[in-house]
C-alpha cells in the first residue's frame, strides 16, 4: 500500500479540509502553488495549469461568502478545470495533427504516458497517487461512483505500465511544462 504523502510543499498540497475559516488572501497564499502543481500533473503544462488555478480562485472569490469549504471548492474547481481543458485539447487534436504520443509512438517521459490516459483516468491516477486520496474522495472530486474510480485507476495503471515497460521508455519526471505545440 502506498504510504500517505507527507504534508508540505515538497510532497504536494495539504489534503485536510479547513477546520476553520481562513481569509481568501491566506488561502491563496497557501494553496496557489499546490494547486498549480496538482493541475500541472493533471493537464501537463504549467502555464495552462496556472490559468486553470487562477480561474478557480476567481470563481471562489466571487462565491466566497457562500462557500462553506473553500479549499474543497477550490480543489473541485481545479479538477473540473483540468478535465474541461483536456476536453478542449482533445477537440483541438481532433481537428489538427497532434504531437502527443500515440500508441505508434514511444512515450519518453511519464508526462507523455499520462497524456495517453483519458482525462478521467489521469485525474484519478493523480488524485490517488499524488494526493493519496481514497476512492470515495476521488469519486466525489471527479463526479463518478466510487466503484468507477477503481476501474479508472486500474485501467490507467495498465496503460501506463504497458508504455513504461516498453523498451526504450524513458523514466524521467513529468511536468517540465514543455508540451509540444499542436498543429497549425
Amino acid at each position: 500500500m502506498i504510504e500517505p504523502a507527507a504534508t508540505g510543499d515538497e510532497a504536494g498540497p495539504t489534503i485536510e479540509f479547513e477546520a476553520e475559516r481562513v481569509s481568501f488572501e491566506a488561502l491563496y497564499a497557501d494553496q496557489f502553488l499546490p494547486m498549480v502543481r496538482l493541475a500541472t500533473l493533471m493537464c501537463g503544462r504549467v502555464e495552462v495549469a496556472r490559468d486553470i488555478v487562477q480561474d478557480a480562485f476567481v470563481r471562489l472569490h466571487v462565491k466566497w461568502a457562500g462557500v462553506d469549504q473553500p479549499q474543497a471548492y477550490l480543489r473541485r474547481s481545479v479538477v473540473n478545470g483540468c478535465r474541461s481543458r483536456a476536453r478542449w485539447e482533445r477537440l483541438r487534436r481532433g481537428r489538427v495533427s497532434s504531437n502527443v504520443p500515440t500508441t505508434q509512438q514511444q512515450p519518453e517521459e511519464l508526462n507523455d504516458v499520462l497524456a495517453l490516459l483519458s482525462a478521467r483516468q489521469r485525474a484519478a491516477i493523480v488524485l490517488r497517487f499524488y494526493e493519496q486520496r481514497n476512492e470515495a474522495e476521488i469519486a466525489e472530486l471527479i463526479g463518478c461512483r466510487p466503484g468507477t474510480v477503481g476501474s479508472l485507476i486500474s485501467r490507467g495503471l495498465a496503460t501506463m505500465k504497458h508504455h513504461l515497460d516498453a523498451p526504450g521508455a524513458g523514466r524521467s519526471a513529468p511536468t517540465d511544462g514543455s508540451e509540444p505545440r499542436h498543429g497549425s
Binding site: I2, Y28, V126, K161, A173
Partner: peptide, 23 residues
C-alpha cells in the same frame, strides 16, 4: 512497485513546478 514508483515520480515532478502567483 509501479504504484510506489508512480507516486514518487509524481511528487518529484510536482515539486519541480513553480508559477507566478498574482492575487
Amino acid at each position: 512497485d509501479l504504484e510506489r514508483d508512480l507516486a514518487d515520480r509524481l511528487r518529484a515532478g510536482a515539486s519541480a513546478v513553480s508559477a507566478h502567483a498574482d492575487l
